[in-house]
Amino acid sequence: MTAQIRLVEITDANRDAVTAVRVHPAQEKFVASVATSFRHARENPKANPWFRAVYRGDEPVGFVMLSWNLTPEPGLRGPYFLWRLLVGAGHQGRGYGTAILDEVVALLRADGATELLTSCVPGEGTPEPFYRGYGFVPTGEIDDDGEVVLKLDLSVRS
């Protein structure tokens, strides 16, 4: 059973609560914080950042950020790139990551996307097994930061 979540726009009213969502300390080397994600979005407007808080009921449990329908160029992958996906430490292991990807994939397919790219830091505790379990496959590419690039074919229905 997939966790029931909803993707919510981030406003002044919920920004602090969403920024407070944190991964386990051991995962911090693999995924940047929500605050850092906001900074990256501001610093990289050409990446067409699209982000949402992930809520279960009235509580923020995660965060997702993509590059949405950008024109790829050096340093910018796309057109659709999963830039950030995080689930708060106290909410992990409940299916939220899969539910977030399910929602994002539905939105991307509705927008006409045929693939979703992401990347992850290799090493013990990396999210790569989660992404591969969802259906992402390595492209064989390593990006400039040493991250493994993965691709999800959105033309295939699972």
Rank of each mutant, 00 (worst) to 15 (best):
G123Q: 11
N69L: 10
T36W: 00
L7I: 06
A53K: 06
I142H: 12
V156P: 03
A17C: 10
P25R: 12
N48K: 13
E59N: 13
Y80M: 05
C120D: 12
R6N: 04
D145S: 15
L150R: 00
C120P: 01
W50F: 09
S33M: 03
L107S: 07
A106E: 14
Q4N: 13
L107N: 06
R157L: 14
F51I: 00
A32I: 08
R39C: 08
K46R: 15
D143I: 03
R84S: 07
R52D: 03
F81M: 11
E103Q: 15
N14P: 14
R39L: 12
P138I: 02
A3W: 03
R56E: 15
E59I: 14
P138D: 08
L101S: 03
E147C: 09
E28R: 15
L150S: 02
E141I: 13
T118Q: 01
D144T: 11
R77H: 10
A47D: 03
L117Q: 04
D102E: 15
E103S: 14
D16R: 12
S119T: 03
V137C: 09
M65F: 10
I10C: 01
G123W: 01
A13I: 02
A41K: 01
N14M: 11
E59R: 15
E73S: 05
G146Y: 10
C120W: 11
W68I: 04
L116W: 06
T98S: 11
A41M: 04
V148W: 00
N44Q: 12
A41T: 07
G57F: 11
V137D: 09
P25E: 12
A106Y: 11
V104M: 07
A106S: 13
